[in-house]
């Protein structure tokens, strides 16, 4: 065990993946000698050479197109998109190519070895274009897996599982927690399961569900609710696609209430998909409408980011409304 922040945990996972697999290659804008703008790939070029860890030109569609070809060839590309806000030039390569490669060829070819890492989320004074949480766009695409860790321990175990998973994975890293989240992380190799949510805290009155950086928001709100005598069950979804309906549904059948909180705007976010499924699975067990506490339906702002965000106070209010419905 060692104390690591979330960046160090990611760097450690990449190091393990590159050491065990000669065909594992890390690349993206500034990831080479500089080690990435957040330093997630720090030291990897020195250790594994310029052919396995390198800078690319500034062209996101090129990075993912190149990664698709490399994965189809049998190598293990770990591509970085510097900010999730800049992933959209690569949307076609991800949605029409990565996600459909195996299906359209009848499994003659696949890009299962592909992992796309990208920092997402707000709360860092990043304004419109350094703050977005675009997971829902990708969740609408069969063929992709989407993973979001909440802390350093989760980040290392889930990233190693993503790199080794035989399907293309988009791995969203909560950049607000890169240095802020510190914890004990095993130095050795381990994996955490993809497609499995985790019950972080048992409770009986309401289920709170989130992923990534939003986890600490709902945990803080649960602490406040506890003082009012409300017992919250807290779940980290961890994988957005394919998501763990069973764990969420069995929790809601127990508590009778569900609150989902996401950083992304409300309309057509992934919380909406969860609400529809749980409504169908748990209809007769629900004591109140499923609540969604999300970002406002605006572009991500700068000066008023606190007002925009789904913070712990908004979650706390929604918990009380749900319980008192």
């Amino acid at each position: 065990m060692a104390q690591m922040n979330l960046l160090q945990a990611i760097n450690n996972a990449l190091d393990i993946a590159m050491a065990e697999n000669d065909s594992a290659v890390c690349f993206g804008e500034d990831v080479g000698h500089f080690g990435g703008v957040f330093r997630a790939t720090s030291g990897l070029q020195e250790k594994y050479g310029k052919t396995r860890c390198f800078n690319t030109p500034l062209v996101e569609q090129g990075i993912i197109g190149f990664a698709n070809g490399l994965a189809a060839q049998g190598s293990t590309p770990i591509a970085e998109i510097q900010f999730a806000d800049y992933i959209f030039p690569a949307f076609d390569q991800i949605v029409n190519e990565s996600a459909k490669f195996r299906y359209r060829s009848g499994n003659e070819f696949n890009v299962g070895k592909l992992t796309i890492r990208t920092p997402y989320g707000g709360g860092i004074a990043g304004g419109l274009y350094h703050s977005q949480s675009p997971e829902a766009y990708f969740a609408h695409t069969p063929g992709l897996k989407i993973v979001v860790p909440r802390n350093p321990y989760q980040a290392k175990g889930l990233l190693l599982a993503s790199i080794r998973d035989d399907n293309p994975v988009v791995f969203f890293e909560p950049k607000r927690l890169y240095r802020a989240s510190v914890g004990e992380v095993p130095t050795e190799d381990y994996q955490l399961p993809i497609g499995k949510a985790e019950v972080v805290q048992q409770g009986s009155d309401i289920t709170l569900l989130a992923w990534g950086a939003q986890m600490e928001i709902i945990e803080k709100a649960a602490e406040m609710a506890k003082k009012d005598g409300i017992s919250c069950e807290i779940i980290d979804l961890r994988t957005i696609l394919p998501w763990d309906v069973e764990t969420v549904a069995s929790s809601v059948m127990k508590t009778g209430r569900l609150l989902i909180s996401q950083e992304a705007p409300l309309t057509a976010g992934f919380a909406s998909e969860i609400a529809a499924t749980i409504q169908s699975e748990c209809f007769l067990h629900l004591e109140s409408p499923i609540a969604r506490v999300c970002g406002l339906d605006t572009p991500y702002p700068l000066a008023l980011e606190k007002e925009h965000a789904a913070d712990h106070l908004k979650v706390y209010e929604a918990i009380k409304n749900s319980v008192n419905y």
């Binding site: 190149f66 070809g69 490399l70 190519e97 003659e108």
Partner: peptide, 25 residues
């Protein structure tokens, strides 16, 4: 012979990546 994809030009950056892998190995 890589399976054809209808969207135009998507195979162009993929061909760069595929060849990079051939060279790497």
């Amino acid at each position: 012979y890589m399976t054809i994809s209808s969207p135009l030009g998507t195979q162009i950056p993929q061909a760069a990546g595929y060849a990079y892998g051939q060279r790497l190995q």
